[in-house]
Design a protein around this nucleic acid. Structure first.
Length: 567
RNA sequence: CUGGGCGUAGUUCAGAUGGCUAGAACGCCAGAAUCGGGAUCUGGAGGUCGUGGGUUCAAGUCCCACCGCCCAGACCA
C-alpha cells in the first residue's frame, strides 16, 4: 500500500465529542468516522485491523470445531414473540415495519434464529454436538451510546451457539470456548482476566466474562493473587460482620426535618452510618420488595436480582413509592410495613438499636430492633464488595481494576429450546429439548479495547497481530532515498511483510507524526543516514536500530525487532 | 425516558447587551522555497450560521417548536 493513495484522513486535533482515548485516537488517526450516535463507518485502516481480529477469532473458532454461518440481520417479530423476548428485550431492540406493516427487528442477538434454524434439520442425537457461529453486525438501541466503538448501537460481534444432548457434552464444549477465548486475548495482545459473571437477561447457569483491563472500562473487576477474579456485581462478601451486643433500647419516632440521605441522618442524629439501615424498594414480577442494607454499604442490585430470580426487577420510582406507601423515598422503613416482602443483608442481622425511616415524612425511628419492632424472614448477601476486602477463595485482600468486557460465555441449558419447542430424538426414542451454550465476542469492541490499553500521548501502539500494517517505510529525502525506499518496499512485499510506504510529498514532520498517531509497530526511515549507507529501524515503543542499507540485513533486523516488540 | 449543556467552513473554535458584506487557526487548492518531528512564504476556494415558524426597520444573536449531538443515571459484546 502507498500512503499517498490511502484513505486515512488524520486530524490534527481531538474531535470535540471524544471522551476517552480510544474514541479520540481512532477518529484522529483516520480509522473511523461517526455517522450518528453510536454508529460508525470503518475506514480502510480500521477495516484491516478488524479483519485481522476477525481472523484470529475465526481461526480459534474453527480449531474447536465451530462452523461458520451467516444469519440475517433483519428478523421477523414472530420468532421473538415466540421466545417472549419481543417484549422482554423491549426498547433495546431496533424495530421496524415492512411495507405490509409487518414487524421486524434488527437483530441484537441470534438465539431465536439459530434455534429456529436447527429446528427441522438437527433432529437426532447422532448429529450432536454441533457448534455454529457467525461474525456479523448487531443492533442494540442503547439508551446511551458512549465511548465510541466501545458502546455502539451498531457493532460487530462473533456469536456462537452449541447444541448438546447432555450437560457433560456442554461442559466439554464450554471449556473449549474458555480456552479459545483466552487464546484470542493473548493473540490480540491484551492484558485480561476471566471472571465469573452473573448471566443477566440471557438466562442459564454458568457464565464467564473475558475482560480486557482498561482504566476507562465499565466493568469493575475484583481479583486476587491466588487467581480468583470476579465482577463486583457478583463477588460474595466474606468479610466480618460487626456484631452489636448491647441492650435493646426503647423504639422512638423522632422528628428529622429535611434529612433524607444516610449521611444527613447520621449527622443529624449523631449516629454512625452503619447503624442507619437503608430501605430500598424494588418492583418486580411479583410486586414490591424491600431490601435492607447497612447504611455504610452499597446495595448490589445484581445479587438481589439473582436472589429473587427476577431479571425484570427495577428500582421503584419515587412517584410510585409515594403513591403506594404515601411516603417520600427518604423516609421509607420496614416498621409497620404491611404486605411487602423484606430481604435483608446479613449485616443487618447483627445490628442493634438502629435507625430506619419513619414511614412518615420528616420522621425516623431510632433504637429499632428486628424481631421486636418488625420481622425479617430472609437474609442474604446483598452488598457490593470493595477492594481490600477478603477474597472469597483464599481470604487475602482483593484488588480492583476496571475493564472492558470483550467475551461472554454462557451455559444456556434448555431455556430457548424449551420455550421455542426445539427438540431432537434421543437414543431412547424420546424427544428432548437441546441443551445449549452461547458464546459472544465483541469484534469491533476489541478494536477499541486494544487502543484503550495500548496508546501514548502520540497515538496508538498496535500489537503486530492486529496492526493495520506491520511496517511503514518512511521516505525522507530526494531521488536516491526515494529509489532505495521503493526497492526496499518491493523487497519487503516479496517477503510477505505487511508494509506500507509513506511516499507522500509532505514534510518529514508530518510523516513522523502520522506514523506515530496511526501506530504502525515498526518504522523504517530512509533519510539522512542513507548517505552513510544506513537506514533507521524504530519500533513504536521507541526501540531503535541503525542498520546497513542492505535489503537482507534490513529484513533480518526487522524480523528480530518484530520478535522483541511489546515483550 | 429524566435532568443539564451544545449546534457557526472539512476540523477546533471566536462572534457582550440585535447593526454581519460572518471571522481565526489548522486542513484543502495553485505556486515558491525546503526536506529528520504536524516547519516557511505568496495567492485562492470553501458557510441555506441544525430545521421551521415568530418578534423587529434589522436576527448567527431574542421567542416558540422540532431535529441532531454531548454529559450524568438504568443496559450490554
Amino acid at each position: 500500500m502507498r500512503f499517498s493513495q490511502l484513505y486515512a484522513p488524520t486530524l490534527r486535533e481531538d474531535p470535540a465529542d471524544a471522551e476517552i482515548p480510544s474514541q479520540a485516537l481512532l477518529q484522529r488517526a483516520g480509522f473511523v468516522r461517526k455517522i450518528a450516535a453510536g454508529v460508525y463507518t470503518y475506514l480502510p485502516l480500521a477495516r484491516r485491523s478488524l479483519l485481522k481480529i476477525e481472523n484470529i477469532v475465526r481461526e480459534e473458532m474453527n480449531k474447536i470445531g465451530g462452523q461458520e454461518i451467516l444469519m440475517p440481520i433483519i428478523q421477523p417479530a414472530e420468532l421473538w414473540q415466540k421466545s417472549g423476548r419481543w417484549d422482554d428485550y423491549g426498547p433495546e431492540m431496533m424495530k421496524l415495519k415492512d411495507r405490509h406493516n409487518r414487524d421486524f427487528t434488527l437483530g441484537p442477538t441470534h438465539e431465536e434464529l439459530v434455534t429456529e434454524l436447527v429446528k427441522n434439520e438437527l433432529t437426532s442425537y447422532k448429529q450432536l454436538p454441533v457448534t455454529l457461529y457467525q461474525i456479523a453486525s448487531k443492533y442494540r438501541d442503547e439508551i446511551r451510546p458512549r465511548f465510541g466503538v466501545l458502546r455502539a448501537r451498531e457493532f460487530i460481534m462473533k456469536d456462537a451457539y452449541s447444541f448438546h444432548d447432555s450437560w457433560e457434552s456442554l461442559d466439554k464444549v464450554y471449556l473449549k470456548f474458555k480456552d479459545a477465548y483466552s487464546k484470542i486475548m493473548e493473540r490480540v495482545g491484551l492484558r485480561y482476566t476471566v471472571i465469573e459473571a452473573s448471566s443477566g437477561a440471557i438466562g442459564g447457569s454458568e457464565s464467564h466474562e473475558f475482560v480486557a483491563f482498561a482504566k476507562t472500562g465499565e466493568s469493575n473487576v475484583l481479583y486476587c493473587e491466588c487467581g480468583y477474579a470476579g465482577s463486583d456485581e457478583r463477588v460474595p462478601y466474606k468479610g466480618e460482620y460487626k456484631v452489636y451486643d448491647e441492650e435493646e433500647k426503647a423504639i422512638e419516632l423522632v422528628y428529622t426535618p429535611n434529612v433524607r440521605t444516610v449521611e444527613q441522618v447520621a449527622e443529624f442524629l449523631n449516629v454512625e452510618t452503619r447503624r442507619i439501615v437503608k430501605s430500598l424498594i424494588f418492583k418486580g414480577r411479583k410486586g414490591f420488595v424491600m431490601a435492607l442494607v447497612p447504611g455504610d454499604r452499597e446495595l448490589n442490585f445484581e445479587k438481589l436480582k439473582a436472589y429473587l430470580g427476577d431479571q425484570s426487577l427495577q428500582m421503584a420510582l419515587p412517584e410510585e413509592i409515594l403513591e403506594e406507601f404515601g411516603v417520600p423515598i427518604g423516609f421509607l422503613g420496614p416498621v409497620n410495613l404491611k404486605n411487602v416482602r423484606i430481604i435483608a443483608d446479613y449485616g443487618v442481622k447483627y445490628l442493634k438499636n438502629f435507625v430506619v425511616g419513619g414511614m412518615k415524612e420528616d420522621y425516623h425511628y431510632i433504637n429499632v430492633n428486628h424481631g421486636r419492632d418488625f420481622e425479617i424472614k430472609e437474609y442474604t448477601d446483598l452488598i457490593v464488595v470493595q477492594k481490600g476486602e477478603p477474597c472469597p477463595v483464599c481470604g487475602k485482600p482483593l484488588k480492583s481494576e476496571k475493564g472492558i468486557e470483550l467475551g461472554h460465555i454462557f451455559k444456556l441449558g434448555t431455556k430457548y429450546s424449551e420455550t421455542m419447542g426445539v427438540k431432537y430424538m434421543d437414543k431412547d426414542g424420546k424427544l428432548k429439548p437441546f441443551i445449549m451454550g452461547c458464546y459472544g465476542w465483541g469484534i469491533s469492541r476489541t478494536l477499541g479495547a486494544v487502543v484503550e490499553q495500548l496508546h501514548d500521548e502520540n497515538g496508538i501502539i498496535w500489537p503486530i497481530s492486529v496492526a493495520p500494517f506491520e511496517v511503514i517505510v518512511t521516505v525522507v529525502g530526494k531521488q536516491l532515498e526515494k529509489e532505495f525506499s521503493e526497492k526496499l518496499y518491493d523487497f519487503l512485499i516479496k517477503n510477505n511483510i505487511d508494509v506500507i510506504i509513506d511516499d507522500r510529498e509532505v514534510s518529514p514532520g508530518v510523516k513522523f507524526k502520522d506514523a506515530d498517531l496511526i501506530g504502525f509497530p515498526i518504522r523504517i526511515t530512509v533519510g539522512k543516514l542513507y548517505k552513510n549507507g544506513q537506514v533507521e529501524l524504530k519500533d513504536r515503543t521507541g526501540k531503535k536500530k541503525i542498520v546497513k542499507a542492505d535489503l537482507n540485513e534490513i529484513l533480518a533486523s526487522l524480523n528480530e525487532m518484530k520478535d522483541e516488540y511489546l515483550k
